[in-house]
Design a protein around this nucleic acid. Structure first.
Length: 289
DNA sequence: GTGTTTGTTATCAA
DNA sequence: CTTGATAACAAACA
């Protein structure tokens, strides 16, 4: 599941190869995932050059040399953005050999492909067709960000007091609150479970019942976990691949997510899994209070 | 055929 | 207004 560390890893990968790339052709294999009329989508993007690549929460924002035009990419659960350059194929510098590439891209999960002026390609793959591409103007972009995204946990302005105030306000479970993108942007099911374990807090605790020390601990461990995952290039649990088609390595560092029935690394207690806030929720009954 | 996986939004009920 | 529960979306896998 692409959450903040995975989306940021993709962004950083693509940043190295996409800036200055001019789109010469694009192919829409699955119209339903493009949330802009196909004709408009193609017309506006052909000939456009990528000037910047940004991220807000789990949303990727591709900026173009077009006044007032932004390409939004949301990977949802199984989306992938994979860049393949012909030069790297010749030098063997990439994960995929030419033979592999021809067989695999585009494949049956490729929903849109972009061709650039230098002959390289960007493939937008998505198994489940939840992910989307969308063209918006500045006004629409600002509105989307303002109404859906709260503070960025890796931003230096990430505020303890604002975070604490949000937690104090809510009588939902702490799990549900941390999943709320308006409270904190970028966490998903994996990192919420990991953060609550690291902070020693049971996921079904009522948010406003957390003691100040617990809130502070949570505030401290969230950026730590995200940064560590970034260092490992994210978590591949099922489908996630980075900007060059490689898996993330944080999976082996997970303390609780997906480990139900196994022993806690910390206290050897058997880890449990429940359903909370509509999600599979993993925790240690002994380490978390 | 059934249950499970989750990011996000919509809808309904209390 | 708040919250939770549930479904919907969508496809694969055990």
């Amino acid at each position: 599941m692409p959450e903040l560390p995975e989306v940021e890893t993709v962004r950083r990968d693509l940043l190295k190869v996409l800036l200055g790339q001019k789109i010469t052709a694009l192919k829409i294999f699955s119209a339903s995932i493009v949330k802009t009329a196909p004709a408009t989508f193609s017309k506006k993007l052909k000939g456009a050059t990528i000037t910047a690549l940004k991220r807000r929460g789990k949303l990727l924002i591709i900026e173009l040399d077009r006044p007032n035009l932004f390409l939004l990419v949301h990977l949802k659960m199984t989306g992938q953005l994979i860049y393949l350059s012909p030069a790297a194929l010749i030098t063997g510098g990439h994960t995929f050999s030419e033979a592999e590439r021809k067989r695999e891209f585009p494949n049956r999960h490729t929903r849109v492909s972009f061709t650039f002026a230098d002959g390289s390609h960007l493939f937008f793959n998505d198994l489940r067709k939840f992910a989307y591409l969308k063209l918006v103007d500045k006004e629409a972009l600002d509105k989307i960000i303002a109404s859906n995204y709260g503070p960025e946990p890796l931003d230096k302005n990430f505020s303890h007091d604002l975070f604490a105030a949000s937690l104090k306000k809510s009588s939902r479970s702490i799990k549900a609150v941390l999943l709320d993108q308006k409270v904190i942007a970028g966490l998903g099911n994996i990192y919420v479970d990991e953060a609550l374990f690291a902070a020693g807090i049971l996921p079904d605790r009522v948010s406003k019942s957390l003691k100040p020390a617990e809130v502070s601990k949570l505030f401290k461990v969230i950026p730590e976990i995200l940064k560590k995952s970034l260092k490992y290039r994210g978590t591949t649990f099922r489908n996630y691949l980075d900007g060059r088609g490689r898996s993330g390595n944080f999976s082996k560092q997970l303390q609780v997510y997906g480990r139900d029935g196994e022993k806690c690394y910390h206290c050897q207690e058997t880890l449990k899994k429940i359903r909370l806030a509509g999600r599979g929720t993993h925790y240690c009954p002994k380490c978390q209070k």
